[in-house]
Write a protein that binds this DNA or RNA. Structure first.
Ligand SMILES: [Mn+2]
Ligand SMILES: [Mn+2]
Length: 583
DNA sequence: AGGGGGTCTG
DNA sequence: TTCACACAATCTG
DNA sequence: GATTGTGTGTCTCAGACCCCCTGA
């Protein structure tokens, strides 16, 4: 084989790989540092300030290397994998950031760290192992090597490769804290800069003056980190007595931190419950303000056969329900409890009857999601099969997100911290709607005239592709939107939207699987598909009942496979409630 | 050699 | 920091 | 029937790369 052929066969045609500008990471890290320095001027500790100052005074290449390491995953990097354009071509003989101990260019690596840096083939070559080890599975190789090599060595002492070295990032604690100060959470990372700059994700632009800082005091920062530790301990199955002592005291000066704290307490109570320690769980639930805590307390009390206590809690919950779910569960539990106590069951309106019909389909079960089969079956008889769509929550959420775009991204204090928000920070907080009531009123008022169609189309075109918690762009197209605007009455839109803002977290999900449009008649219906063995979920039931109360055309389609025997479901009185599949 | 799963990349 | 589904196990009346 | 918990498939940004498996 000639060299040319080898070269041609090993050459990988590189599709347009996005390239980052020279010193890309440095520029962004400097932006971050100056943001943090000015925003947290009053809160930074001496060693954090010292780091910032030392960084800013270091020479270009030195800064670029550190910035590159901070903003990428991991804390060990092979020099040969870092492009010159990222950090510059030459390195100073004496690097002040290395001398200060922020970075090391000769870290001692154990065999496992070395293995993380090299492929299996490279590892075998570097360690001068017999060629046959390259055929071992990597896990076996790792076990064998761990037993053979127990010492830590500099990379250049492990490998005879003179051209390469390894850098280690040693300031991880400070950088992790800066990440927290910048993003206000611990799930976002510096890679958001990259994905945003490459236009992989587009974020709504929030005016700088509307940005706030997530932490107002040093104590809040410490409390957040404490909560994070507790969450990790909880996952590790730490003894609860120890864990409970770790939980911070009530946080009076930050709503969202206190909510995080309550969420942690709820999680700990949940673990108590699972471990069978009902007493402790109940006590924690009763003191916990996290959504759902009171519901759990009701369940535990009724399980303990404390009927009086259960009833008292139920009545309290019914008078002031924390959520639709709580109300639903109280409605189910309270009659049973009253029965136990010999009290007359409080009269409730009977649950509305959800229209349903049955569809008998051929074909193998499980071949494809049953929703698609029903969609295609319904589409068969239509001129335009596209008018039946499998949308689930996507469509109504998108309409809501488009009409209410200005409210969702309203510059509320404490909602936006940086340029990478998919949603305001308090979206799921329970205060979300109240803090934007006026903005939502403006948006909803468009529904009183035909104006809302224009508003939705305008936002659709103007904001296309921008991340939103309610709009998933790839599941939207113009035809779908057009039919939705033609066929959904404004009153129905308003009812759905009010349902969503009532409890964003809980009520944005549960919409039926399919939507069918009759554009000529400006008519629609929603269909929840249920395969055999699938029953209506609680949140679907709540939404369907709400829709029925607003006289919307919703129904449930029960699917039966043609080779199966008819279910008893169709044998009893329910048959009469069926509505035909057509119309 | 080729496919699938997982991870990293920009 | 998904959501919905399929299925199993358990308890209750 | 109610309830809870489990696993799974779907979504993730697409493509390159690594590792492992299968089967000629
Ligand atoms: Mn569904
Ligand atoms: Mn369904």
């Amino acid at each position: 084989m000639s060299r040319g052929i080898i070269a041609a066969s090993t050459y990988k045609a590189r599709l347009p790989v996005p390239a980052l500008a020279p010193f890309y990471y440095l520029k962004n890290f400097e932006r971050v540092l100056s943001t943090i320095a000015s925003r947290y001027e009053d809160l930074l500790l001496a060693h954090e300030l010292r780091f910032i100052t030392a960084f800013q005074q270091a020479p270009l290449n030195s800064r670029a290397l550190l910035a590159r390491m901070v903003m990428r995953q991991g804390d060990l990097f092979r020099a040969s994998k870092i492009e010159y354009s990222e950090i510059g071509e030459t390195r100073a003989a004496a690097d002040p950031l290395i001398e200060a101990g922020w970075v090391s260019d000769r870290p001692l690596l154990d065999i496992k760290q070395l293995q993380g840096l090299l492929t299996k083939a490279e590892l075998v070559r570097c360690l001068k192992l017999p060629r046959r080890y390259a055929d071992w599975r990597k896990a076996d190789l790792q076990a064998m090597l761990a037993a053979t090599f127990t010492e830590r060595r500099d990379f250049r002492d492990w490998c005879a490769d003179p051209g390469d070295l390894v850098y280690a990032l040693l300031v991880t604690p400070v950088c992790e804290r800066f990440r927290l100060l910048f993003f206000g959470n611990d799930w976002q990372s510096w890679t958001d800069f990259v994905t945003a700059d490459l236009k992989i994700f587009n974020f709504e632009k929030i005016a700088q003056h509307a940005h706030s800082r997530p932490f107002q005091t040093r104590a809040q920062i410490d409390q957040f980190q404490r909560l994070r530790e507790c969450r990790e301990l909880l996952l590790d199955g730490t003894p609860y007595s120890e864990l409970v002592r770790m939980v911070p005291e009530a946080i009076g000066d930050s709503d969202w931190l206190e909510e995080e704290r309550q969420k942690l307490i709820f999680g700990i109570a949940r673990e108590h419950e699972r471990a069978g320690d009902t007493q402790a769980a109940l006590a924690m639930y009763l003191r916990c303000t996290h959504r759902g805590a009171r519901t759990r307390a009701i369940v535990l009390k009724s399980r303990a056969r404390d009927w009086e206590g259960t009833r008292a809690l139920c009545l309290k919950a019914r008078a002031n329900p924390a959520s639709e779910e709580e109300l639903q569960r109280v409605r189910r539990i309270l009659p049973r409890v009253c029965l136990k106590l010999g009290l007359p069951a409080t009269s409730e309106d009977p649950a509305p009857v959800i229209p349903e019909f049955e569809l008998v389909l051929d074909g193998r079960p499980r071949a494809r999601a049953v929703e698609y089969l029903v969609r295609d079956h319904l589409a068969l008889e239509l001129v335009d099969g596209d008018t039946v769509r499998y949308v689930e929550n996507g469509l109504v959420n998108a309409l809501f997100g488009l009409l209410c775009w200005p409210a969702v991204f309203a510059p509320v204090a404490g909602a936006f911290f940086h340029d990478f928000h998919r949603a305001p920070a308090d979206l799921a907080s329970g205060h979300f709607y109240n803090r934007r009531k006026n903005d939502f009123e403006v948006c909803f008022s468009h529904l009183e005239t035909d104006h809302y169609r224009k508003v939705i189309w305008t936002v659709f075109k103007k904001k296309w592709g921008i991340q939103s918690p309610f709009v998933r762009w790839h599941s939207l197209d113009r035809a779908l939107l057009q039919w939705a605007l033609d066929c959904f009455p404004a009153a129905h839109l308003r009812a759905w939207f009010e349902w969503i803002v009532r409890d964003v977290r809980e009520n944005r999900a549960g919409f039926p699987d399919l939507v069918q449009f009759w554009p000529a008649e400006r008519r629609y219906r929603l269909i929840e598909v249920k395969g055999p063995g699938d029953r209506i979920q609680d949140n679907q039931k709540r939404l369907l009942e709400y829709c029925l109360a607003h006289r919307m055309p919703v129904s449930v389609c029960y699917v039966r496979w043609s080779q199966d025997r008819p279910e008893s479901r169709s044998a009893d009185g329910k048959q009469s409630r069926r509505i035909p599949a057509e119309n």
